[in-house]
Amino acid sequence: MRRPIALRISTYLLVALIAVSSLLPLAWMAIAGFKGRTEVLRTPFQFLPEVWRIENYAQILADSEFTRAMTVTFIGAVIFTVLSLAVNASAAYAFARLDFRFKRYLWAFCIVPLFIPGFAILLTSFVVVSGLGMLDTMAVLVIPGVASAFQMFFIRQFYLGIPVALEEAAMIDGASRWKIFTTIFLPQSRAPFVVVGVASFLGFWNAYVWPILTIQSPELFQIQQYLGNFRSERGNEWGLLMAGSFLSALPLITLVLIFQRYIVNGVRISGLK
């Protein structure tokens, strides 16, 4: 059904308007990074710089603390993502397919954390990790959040939807449960793994409260921690701060653009509609 021209034009305008207002703060941040030190604070504001200067971007990229924070956070986020997929997917498979003793109770045990806000246990989690001697190490950033009720639940929903016929055939052929998991389930897990994997990566990359509580050594500073400190210590260097903030968000935006197809369809897998 082709629509009349006027309607089509107004649809395009509406789409453009929504897209622009959604991306405006990001564009403003990226563009402010190209402005000079006084130009960035000029009143009335100018959207585009008079001269596009790359000094801010060059300066922040030459700042070893910034690049170190980016690198350390990136490495941590990758390890975190891989570990959480391994832990949560294997538990999801077990709950979707296996029968074992106390399954009902263990299920309740694993799903209750979904309803525990991080704040209720923030202080005592801190006591626990300091008791384990984990403070100020990479482990304290990675390990505590690996097991996730939400991710396990999400992957299990997906596994419940996989037909059992294929497994029954494999079992008759004598395949072990482990073999079935690795040869039948894992290859089909791409879509849910991308969705929860991206969520893990995002969660780690954007974490702020936990790092500022547990990390003191500058060598382990996380990127959000770096930006938070920058804001309180050198808060008047807006051009530099905007450049750094934009660069810190770039990996995530790239991730979304690469996996957009999976992500925008991700909500349908969860079964929560």
């Binding site: 990001l26 403003w28 810190s248």
Partner: peptide
């Protein structure tokens, strides 16, 4: 995709950008 992109921005970055946008100068 366009409306999803802001979702990935951290609270810290969003805070900093909006503080900057709310400034009286610039």
């Amino acid at each position: 995709t366009t409306i999803y992109i802001p979702t990935v921005i951290s609270f810290v970055v969003a805070s900093v950008v909006f503080v900057f946008m709310y400034r009286s100068q610039g």
